[in-house]
């Protein structure tokens, strides 16, 4: 098991673990080239795609947010209008009810007054008729009684 450890420090004939040669600069060159190639093929286009998407998402989000705010504002506006309309309707209904009540009362009062008046007039007429009838009756009674008397008691 010691052979490769020995080799690592001795570098025996040729090679060894720490054999530095032209591999080093060429590998460095290769990696630099790879950096440029990957930059052109990978980092730039993918970065652009990702950042475009991020931008798109951000603007869409902002747009959606402003739309949402607008919708909320509209909703609040409409709600306020609805509330106003409801209140107006309420007052209208109340007013109408009061008006109706008033009219009803007025009509009722008028009708009652008219009925009272006509009843009074009727009663008065009845009274007059009755008194007239009584007077006539009285008159006829006295006439009849006179006739009876004249019939029973021959005139001297």
């Amino acid at each position: 098991m010691t052979s490769w450890l020995l080799l690592a420090e001795a570098g025996a004939q040729e090679g060894g673990l720490f054999d530095l040669d032209a591999t080093l600069p060429l590998m460095a060159l290769q990696v630099v080239l790879l950096t440029f190639i990957l930059n052109a093929l990978f980092f730039r286009p993918v970065g652009k795609a990702v950042e475009d998407r991020e931008g798109y998402i951000n603007t869409s989000r902002a747009e959606a947010k402003s739309k949402l705010a607008q919708a909320e504002r509209l909703e609040a506006d409409l709600k306020a209008q609805l509330k106003d309309a409801r209140q107006e309707a309420q007052t209208l209904v109340v007013n109408a009810e009061q008006e109706m009540d008033r009219l009803y009362r007025a009509a009722l009062a008028e009708a009652t007054a008219a009925a009272n008046a006509s009843r009074e007039a009727a009663r008065r007429e009845i009274d007059a008729e009755r008194s007239k009838a009584v007077a006539e009756l009285d008159q006829q009674a006295s006439l009849l009684s006179d006739q009876i008397v004249s019939r029973l008691l021959p005139t001297p």
Binding site: G11, L17, M27, L34
Partner: peptide, 29 residues
């Protein structure tokens, strides 16, 4: 361990096995 597959580039020596496997790696990438 410590053995290399030498390529000669002019009078420079390079480790061929390192470049071969790195080309596979770069190719896959």
């Amino acid at each position: 361990v410590g053995q290399h597959f030498y390529w000669n580039l002019g009078n420079l020596k390079i480790h061929g096995q390192v470049f071969l496997s790195s080309w596979v790696v770069i190719g896959a990438l």
